[in-house]
Design a protein around this nucleic acid. Structure first.
Lengths: 346, 346
DNA sequence: ATTAGCACTCCAACTAGTCGAGTGCTAACA
DNA sequence: TGTTAGCACTCGACTAGTTGGAGTGCTAAT
């Protein structure tokens, strides 16, 4: 059904459309791509491809444009190709930029998004590491004011979360230290997930002398642990999208930009469990979000110790240079993972 | 030179233009505003106003639109009016929304920006409190790993800043405690500004036994203090601007949106010392940034204990409803200040 | 199976004509 | 002398008609 020639025609159309964003006709195609057949033959093939749902016509006398289904075919073949050769030089270039910003995770991700957006000319997104599966390394309570206590949590990726809360009772640093030490001995090494229900009433018996205080503390610690599941989203280069003809219509631009501006929504989309592979691509209407029906997202994961802890990706029109994008994202994925590994890995 | 009638005509034009965004002619003006004179007279007045640089003509047979100078006149008279009556009901409404989000400063400001943008329909900006003039409340060093030390800084607004750094030498928590206590006793209550050059070599003499460690620590602490001057920018409702006809031209939209997206640039603009009054308004070309020549910014400050510590504001086309905006921003200014005062004030 | 040829379609760009809201000037008026 | 009615003129926005080019699909010949 899809013989080689049809594929050749289809890919030629896709490649041409990715560059020009213009519907492409049989004559132009036969002129610019050496397909060895005349425009009439191509016309017939195109007609077949349209019947297969791989091409669309904006109107009866216009050229054809690839459908989402066509991009899917194309992209799957790209991903299957596996002829990915790491461009060491490019990788190093990117790494050099990122390393200089890698003192802190948030900075690293922000810069990654910025650079990724610059390189690809699309909007770049980065999700900070999620703590869900990370392990607790240190818990510390500090008295910083008469009734105010600072709770500091450090996970095994050295991400720090601090919360200040009021205690309607004064407490000394020594007391807090005792509690901290106890909590540390009990909880260190456990994952945040496991922790959730662990700090329960039973702990009271072990530290009975601090019963009063612990009863106040426990819910606060639990809440703080809950909050730790919170991930940060970094987006960069939003306005770059306005350069693409597919968003020249103000309503389309508004639709996509306000989607990207809604961090909760974007996070919900990115945290979808389906996006868990080294590279994931969601094309046009494959998206569950109406606002993205003319856009694609390409995501990559980054990891520490082989464990995926965050994502980075781009968003843009369905007409994207997927090939370049896949390669670029792989470079970022590897680089970020390597940098984090060096900073926090065992 | 500017008699009452001219002012009346000018203000009528401004008010009309703020609503419609359309150039307004003498006939429409005389019909919709009761100025007691004919369109011909208004025509003469408009001609005079144009000569004074207060009105512009898009082209010879169009109506007039107010110039930046006209808005300045208008806005100055608004600010001078001082007939500002606190709308207690509205104030309370806003407060109710904000209070529920006021556990942490960053959350409060983010929500403030969000709500402000919703209410005004412009892009809202909020700058987090700057620590420059805030005072240090607590310094703590914690050992969280073999060679890793966590530095926690708390200021008098209970804003916490934490940094992790590697020490190529292992150090016990007890040693760190001693150093922490010493630093606390020395530095507590000082402003971050004062601190900058204070942690110098002289400190070594006081704590000679820790000389080796302190020599490593001091530059790190100083750097961390430097970083503390860093303020966060929250922007919300960027895409709202696309609804205004003045940005319907894609190039204009791109220009303003990419300005707003550049947080460094926006911060630089907002931190301008000229924007230090309860309400500040910068109109069109009064801005030092070419990208803002068709836009205005209106900012308000918020404070603790009468001391300005941050700003909140909106950005939009020069044709803004300044009156409403001033009142709304005042409400936000007061509310945020009150909430912060309650949370952190003495 | 492939291709040349041809009639047909449709959009984009251009042109010309009209309309309406506006201006500026002049002359008349209170 | 300030105000107003009247009028010629201007200019952009809109509409309708025209043209040209790029494309399609069909048919008949190779």
């Amino acid at each position: 059904m899809l013989d080689e020639r049809k594929l050749k025609v289809l890919y030629a159309i896709i490649n041409s459309y990715i560059i020009s964003a213009e519907p492409i006709g049989s004559r132009t195609l036969s002129k610019h791509y050496d397909l060895g057949v005349s425009s009439a033959t191509i016309r017939n093939e195109m007609s077949d491809l349209e019947e297969l749902g791989l091409l669309n016509k904006p109107h009866s006398s216009a050229g054809r444009i690839p459908s989402d289904k066509a991009y899917r075919l194309y992209v799957d073949s790209l991903l299957k190709l596996d002829n990915f050769i790491l461009d060491e030089k490019k990788k190093q270039q990117i790494k050099n930029i990122l390393v200089s910003e890698s003192q802190e995770v948030d900075h690293l991700l922000q810069t990654s998004a910025k650079v990724l957006s610059e390189i690809t000319n699309y909007t770049a997104l980065a999700v900070s590491p999620h703590l869900k599966s990370s392990k607790i390394k240190h818990i510390q309570l500090l008295s910083i004011d008469e009734n105010k206590v600072l709770l500091v949590l450090v996970n095994n990726s050295d991400i720090v979360k601090s919360t200040i809360f009021n205690l309607d009772k004064s407490i000394t640093n020594n007391q807090l230290n005792t509690i901290s030490n106890f909590l540390n001995s009990k909880l260190k090494g456990l994952s945040f997930e496991q922790l959730n229900n662990l700090i329960g009433p039973d702990i009271l018996y072990d530290l009975y002398e601090y019963k009063d205080i612990l009863e106040k503390l426990i819910p606060i610690i639990n809440k703080s642990l809950d909050d730790s599941e919170y991930v940060e989203l970094y987006s960069e280069g939003i306005t770059r999208l306005l350069n693409y003809p597919e968003y020249k219509d103000l309503d389309k631009a508004k639709s996509i930009l306000s989607f990207i501006e809604d961090k909760d929504l974007v996070l919900e989309m990115l945290m979808d469990d389906a996006l868990c592979n080294e590279i994931d691509i969601v094309i046009g209407t494959e998206n569950n979000y109406a606002q993205l029906k003319n856009s694609s997202i390409v995501t990559a994961t980054y990891s520490i110790g082989g464990k995926t802890i965050g994502k980075i990706g781009v968003i843009g029109p369905t007409r994207m240079d997927y090939y370049k994008l896949i390669n670029t994202l792989k470079l970022f994925s590897i680089n970020i993972s390597e940098i984090l590994e060096k900073l926090f890995g065992k």
